[in-house]
Amino acid sequence: MEDPAFLEKINRLVSQTGELLFCLHPVHDETMTVPGQHSLYTIFFLEEGEGMYHADFGVFPFRGPMLLFSTPLQVIYMQECHGLKGTMLQFHGDFYCIEYHKAQVGCNGLLFNNIYIEPSIALTPPEVKGFKKILADMEEEFAAQVPDEMVLRSYLQLFLARSSSAKLHALSTSDPKERDEQMEQFMQLLEKNFLTLHKPNDYANLLAMSPNTFSKRCVRYFKKTPSTLIQERLILEAKKKLHLTRQSIKEIAHALNFEDESYFSRFFKKFTNVSPQTFRDKTGISMMADVAP
């Protein structure tokens, strides 16, 4: 269950069964001080303020205006926050499926479910103005006697599409001097070999680097250790299969090369604090599970 204090929201849309589908509420310095897991996608629109954003094992300093992102059941919280002003937006995968709408918004793998890039976007003044307008439109719709789900879903899609555009622009204008070709190569090697190579030394050897140098470069470039990235990549794949397919837990364990379902479940729970079945129960099975490939 979600933390009741966390759910003290101004605007909420719930399903006929009482499940929280979409919500907005104001952000302040005490909003996220305690680590928590929430079954919805979460976006923080921060006009002002600064602090440290923790998402699973990554720690990201931020200073507004910014957007921060997290996926369902990530462990997220903030520390050393000062002067936060903004809005937290949350939506359930049943309300808006980011995989189904990837052609329209392109946010899956960019804003969400990407272990390599920071889950944040620094915003320009025109971008801040645009996001504030969308949020104001959402709040106006929530104020209606019977809020229209389709209208709210359209506003959410626009918010996500604008976020994706802002992220792509930020990535395209980043300083090329900051690019580390060997770390980019590590990312490609991990994508190719995450099912079979699970030790940092495996990748250090492939890159012809000493383990110590490899680790330092990785932390500097990705803000995560090699071990964290390797584990996160496996967990990400497990989450995809739990949410986007109807494969059994046993079938998923086998597909990910775990020796048995029990070991897979222990590994998954160690890094997510929930069992694979609990993750599936809380996030649901996407409509994409029934879409022919």
Score class of each variant (00 low, 15 high):
6 F>Y: 15
9 K>W: 03
10 I>Q: 15
11 N>Y: 15
13 L>E: 11
18 G>K: 12
20 L>R: 14
20 L>P: 04
21 L>V: 07
22 F>V: 10
25 H>V: 04
25 H>W: 10
29 D>C: 01
29 D>P: 02
32 M>H: 14
34 V>Y: 13
38 H>L: 13
40 L>Y: 08
41 Y>Q: 08
42 T>K: 08
43 I>A: 12
43 I>S: 11
48 E>T: 04
49 G>N: 04
50 E>C: 08
56 D>Q: 10
57 F>A: 08
61 P>V: 11
63 R>K: 11
68 L>P: 05
69 F>Y: 08
70 S>K: 00
75 V>K: 14
79 Q>E: 15
81 C>W: 01
88 M>G: 09
93 G>W: 05
95 F>C: 09
98 I>R: 09
98 I>W: 09
98 I>L: 13
104 Q>H: 13
106 G>W: 05
107 C>R: 09
119 P>Q: 01
119 P>K: 02
119 P>H: 03
125 P>D: 07
128 V>C: 12
128 V>Q: 07
129 K>M: 10
129 K>A: 10
133 K>R: 15
136 A>Y: 02
137 D>I: 00
143 A>V: 02
145 Q>W: 07
146 V>A: 12
147 P>S: 09
148 D>W: 08
149 E>R: 13
152 L>P: 03
152 L>W: 05
164 S>E: 11
164 S>D: 08
165 S>L: 11
166 A>Q: 06
167 K>R: 12
174 S>F: 11
181 E>P: 00
188 Q>R: 12
196 T>S: 07
198 H>K: 07
198 H>N: 07
200 P>C: 03
200 P>M: 03
201 N>D: 14
208 A>K: 14
209 M>H: 03
211 P>G: 02
212 N>D: 10
215 S>W: 02
216 K>T: 08
219 V>Y: 14
230 I>E: 03
233 R>H: 15
233 R>I: 08
235 I>D: 07
238 A>F: 01
239 K>I: 01
245 T>G: 05
247 Q>V: 04
249 I>T: 14
251 E>S: 15
253 A>F: 04
257 N>A: 12
260 D>W: 02
262 S>D: 09
265 S>V: 02
266 R>K: 15
273 N>K: 10
277 Q>N: 12
279 F>S: 02
285 I>H: 06
287 M>N: 14
293 P>T: 00
293 P>S: 10
